[in-house]
């Protein structure tokens, strides 16, 4: 049992892997190891005693009780473990599995940290694997699309600049029927609370903004929402491994605040 026995088809992974060679993988793995992997990765990879206690902390492992290849330590062994052991020289087919595992079978929740006596952060190790995947262009299609959206609109759902403000004004309008005089104050300088959301709210769940506004209104607090991009506090680039875009998003969000 292992990742190679359960590969799924993904346009993004397939497309990325089709352009790889073992040499290219090796080059990128080595460069990430040289420039970004530090003491944490080294200490984690060395001191894991393979006690298996983390198995009870991982929902992927718990939901596959008969398949030990889903435990956090096993997932590290199948991804970063392979890359460290081989110095990154793996064939593209193997890398497909590594990427699939890193993106779809660990969601970086860090729950296993509560189960590891030594404090090994599997989520961190998986982020490093994802970082390598990003550098190699091997990312699942839909998460990569959200990363593209982030880079363009600074939100994850391709919500355009005007659609955002329009949505807030629409919800403000709707809410006024129920709460006369309710406001969603935009760009109010010096407000006590800066309310930020994630892009699925304006895109699919606009009533959440309505409800938040109703609560703020009833509580009588001094709040505001930004009219400019940067209002989305999510960051799918962190999850794809595009740390450069991650920094750009974080800066935009904080400077908007």
């Amino acid at each position: 049992m292992g990742i190679q026995d359960r590969l799924i088809e993904d346009v993004g992974l397939r497309r990325g892997v089709s352009r790889l060679t073992p040499e290219k993988i090796e080059t990128v793995v080595r460069s990430v190891m040289a420039s970004e992997a530090g003491a944490r990765l080294k200490a984690y990879s060395e001191t894991c005693m393979r006690c298996g206690m983390c198995a009870k902390g991982c929902h992927f492992a718990l939901s596959h009780p008969d398949d030990p290849s889903y435990t956090p330590a096993a997932k590290v062994a199948q991804t970063m473990g392979v890359l460290l052991k081989t110095g990154g020289r793996v064939d593209p087919g193997t890398f497909y599995g590594i990427a699939q595992l890193a993106y779809t079978e660990c969601n970086l929740c860090k729950r296993c940290v509560h189960y590891c006596p030594i404090g090994i952060d599997t989520g961190f190790i998986m982020s490093m694997v994802r970082r390598i995947c990003h550098k190699l262009g091997v990312t699942p299609q839909y998460i990569q699309d959200t990363a593209h959206s982030h880079s363009t609109t600074f939100n994850q759902m391709w919500v355009k600049d005007d659609e955002w403000i329009d949505t807030l004004q629409w919800q403000e309008d709707e809410a006024r029927d129920e709460f006369p005089g309710l406001r969603i104050p935009l760009d109010k300088e010096g407000a006590e609370i800066y309310y930020s959301v994630i892009a699925p709210e304006p895109k699919f769940r606009t009533q959440l903004i309505y409800q938040a506004a109703a609560i703020f209104n009833a509580a009588g607090v001094d709040w505001t929402m930004p009219s400019q991009p940067g209002w989305d506090n999510s960051d799918m680039c962190m999850f794809t491994g595009d740390f450069e875009m991650m920094g750009r998003l974080k800066r935009r969000h904080f400077e908007s605040a």
Binding site: R50, C51, G52, D66, P68, A74, A77
Partner: peptide
């Protein structure tokens, strides 16, 4: 014994 008997520990034992 754990390394031999427990599948999830055996799988990660090196």
């Amino acid at each position: 014994g754990r390394r031999l008997a427990m599948p999830d520990v055996r799988a990660i034992t090196t």
